[in-house]
Amino acid sequence: MGVKDILGGENFLTTRLDKAIGWARKYSIFQYPFVTACCGMEFMATAASHHDIDRFGAGLPRFSPRQADVLMVVGTINHKMAPILRRVYEQMCEPKWVVAFGVCTCTGGFYDNYAVVQGIDTIIPVDVYIPGCPPRPETVLNGLMLLQEKIEKGKQVY
């Protein structure tokens, strides 16, 4: 069944603006990889050809927070790094989402000590948590799909 059949011979379709924008946004994610630690290795693996994050429309990293929609916090955040993460988040334009990549960003992981922030949600709001130390590329893609679902269904700001 082709597109024409779905449209019933007409060359237009009706939808809600919210839904259309949500649909478009979820496949055009510009991510900012805030890579600090071990998880970066798996982030590289996810981005490279084997797992190919580009299939999900999230292949283009932007290293300027002002151009990015999704802040991927990849790796442990310690007390020295926390103010910088906060500033990067504040520099991003709305709409923006945050992914906590790896267990250190979710809860601090097994680094329960004087240096490490116990979960980045103590500093900035988080949309999707991807646990794992580090998460496998499959888990990352699953997390990304959850984020896409959230982007699509959420209230659209435009």
Binding site: A37, K80, F110, Y111, N113, A115
Partner: peptide
């Protein structure tokens, strides 16, 4: 020091 995770203390 931006990734100091207190390895030696842990």
């Amino acid at each position: 020091g931006y990734l100091h995770r207190a390895f030696e203390k842990e």
